[in-house]
């Protein structure tokens, strides 16, 4: 059995979380609150070190006053705390949502639409590979038919959409199996930690 305090803490917290498999209980609640509290404290420190210090405190120290603009917007967000000043937060929120929407739309179009279209329009593979290319084309058109909202799923459109949903479900099945496999390996790693690093009943500690 381990003599390290760290390992004991990790093992006991792991067991507290695993106790949730039975039902909600004070041990799980303790781990939950500890986790949320530690995460909040940790993230506050990370935000201070990685965001505030390099982007605001250091530039202000060098005499660059530009960071005062985001600082003011940040303070305006806090205006929500009082009824009288709550309208100030709307300016900051509008700026934030506007900026992010402006960034998101072209980036989304490039990564999600043009990149996929470029792949879908590649020349067909020679020989038997043409079957793959044909499947990609059929999958593309039928899944697109499923996601067409301006017409009811009836007739040829409905039939295409039904084929499309089969393509989607096959893809989901493959993704599900792959991810479950990854989760099982995470569980194995945790059990290995308990049995090897903590209890020492497995070799290799």
């Amino acid at each position: 059995m381990s003599h390290s305090v760290d390992t004991w803490i990790m093992a006991l917290l792991t067991l507290c979380v695993f106790s949730f498999l039975y039902r909600d209980n004070p041990f799980y609640r303790f781990a939950e609150h500890l986790f949320v509290g530690a995460a909040a404290g940790y993230l506050l420190a990370v935000q201070y070190q990685n965001v505030l210090v390099p982007n605001m405190i250091r530039p202000l120290g060098r005499g660059n006053l530009l960071p005062l603009v985001p600082l003011a917007l940040g303070i305006m967000l806090l205006g929500r705390l009082a009824e009288k000043t709550s309208s100030a937060s709307r300016w900051a929120l509008a700026f934030y949502v506007g900026i992010y929407s402006g960034i998101a739309v072209p980036a989304y179009m490039q990564a999600q639409i043009f990149a996929q279209l470029a792949d879908a329009t590649k020349p067909w593979q020679p020989g038997w590979g043409a079957i793959n290319s044909a499947l990609i084309l059929i999958g593309f058109l039928t899944v697109l038919a499923y996601f067409f909202f301006s017409a009811p799923h009836r007739g040829l459109h409905g039939a295409s959409a039904r084929v499309g949903i089969w393509f989607l479900m096959v893809a989901f099945g493959a993704s599900f199996g792959y991810t479950v496999m990854a989760r099982v390996s995470l569980l194995i790693a945790r059990v290995q930690f308990l049995l090897r690093d903590w209890l020492g009943v497995l070799p290799g500690a």
């Binding site: 039902r23 939950e32 986790f35 949320v36 995460a39 909040a40 993230l43």
Partner: peptide
């Protein structure tokens, strides 16, 4: 609640129960 993924999960699952 929390901006850490699994801390959020822990809090929300507790809330659900």
């Amino acid at each position: 609640v929390a901006a850490a993924q699994f801390a959020y999960v822990a809090a929300v699952t507790g809330l659900m129960l």
